[in-house]
Write a protein that binds this DNA or RNA. Structure first.
Lengths: 207, 207
DNA sequence: GCCGTCCTTGAAACTTGTTCCAGATTAACG
DNA sequence: CGTTAATCTGGAACAAGTTTCAAGGACGGC
């Protein structure tokens, strides 16, 4: 459906120039979003900045929402790599997740407008952006599960806990963006929700 | 504490005809949203259905977002009254909250398109709709605290837990609307997060 | 009842996301 | 190369949220 850079499945490969175009579009989007948030990401502007025609922009990303969710995905992939390089060092799974999310939030706070643009797009997305949203969702889950550090396939209760952590994460961000929650409350809520994460089982297989 | 439907504070009182107009607008909005969700709530349509001029609609509700959040607020007030009449009957605070939210979700499932319209508006709202969003937020908190059944002013840890419950509630709804979570998962996540709610303290003041 | 003020109306204009199209460019293949 | 299909471009056109404005109506104070 949409062209993807890294998913070799289900998409015709892009030529080098196409890859470059795609990258220019994403970069232009980030730049505009950084400056003025969701509202400043105007499709004509993006197209101009990226030196592509409007129609081309829409061929690559079928809507503003798709575009911004793709940026979010990009960023999350970066975050995941960072966390891989310097993994959180807590002793308990809950503490590691707190650290991972806290670090993520610290990074997001540095660029509040970009964050606003990505998060608003993500939460506003409807089913038409299902694939992209799904990808972001899976990535977030993967990041949290990485921090939990469990080896085998997670049992359903753990998955529900992880979903609740993610819910809190997303919604706390929204609350923070709309001025309803302070940054301190976000940190606190992350800590609170992570108490749901069960401690490492001493008998079971662990790191 | 919470502003009543027609908050007597900080707003000039409306004449009877103005009150009627406001009500017509809200009713027309609900009707359109019920039929076609967020997208079907078009400002010109709303104005036509409610028999007011477009400019008047915008005087009452400065944006589509404000309008739909006001509808949400209206509904939440109704929900709160319902819960007052037939309060959840669980023995523990957590169980009561689960029941309250479960009943709410059951009601929302009956009118998915209306739900979609309200929730998307709420999560998309930015600071310009701060007041309305704040009202909805306070109402939600009040509903959860009602179910918790605590008497005095809640301590900060409890408030953080309640916020996490609300985060989960909102974000699970979004996930459900965007097809990412099943209804069963929503129920499960509500139950999971409510485990954070501390049990009734036998020594303290209780019902 | 009269007057000044605020409210409502109808309609046009403006903004920005999205779609469409005809012609130019590029890539793939023989 | 030459051909053919796909892609890209510039630009117009459309859709829906929002703004603006002049003229008529409602309301409260006198």
């Amino acid at each position: 459906m949409t062209a993807r850079p890294d998913s070799p499945s289900s998409a015709p490969p892009l030529t080098e120039r196409q890859e470059a175009r795609r990258r220019r579009i994403l970069d232009a989007t980030v730049e505009l979003a950084r400056r003025g948030g969701f509202g400043a990401v105007q499709m004509r502007e993006v197209a101009d900045s990226a030196d592509v025609a409007l129609g081309t922009l829409y061929r690559y990303f079928p809507s503003k929402i798709h575009l911004l969710v793709a940026v979010l995905r990009d960023r999350l992939e970066g975050l995941r790599e960072t966390l891989h390089e310097r993994p959180p060092g807590g002793r308990e799974p809950g503490a590691r997740v707190v650290e991972a999310l806290t670090r993520a939030f610290r990074a997001l706070r540095e660029e509040p407008r970009l964050t606003e643009a990505m998060v608003r797009a993500f939460t506003f997305a409807d089913r038409s952006a299902g694939a992209e949203v799904e990808a972001v969702s899976r990535l977030t889950t993967a990041i949290v599960l990485d921090a939990v550090g469990r080896q085998g396939p997670p049992p359903p209760e753990l998955l529900s806990v992880v979903r609740v952590v993610e819910h809190t994460w997303h919604s706390a961000l929204i609350g923070w963006l709309s001025g309803r929650c302070s940054g301190e409350q976000v940190y606190g809520d992350i800590k609170t929700v992570c108490e749901l994460i069960p401690a490492e089982t001493p008998g079971g297989a662990h790191r």
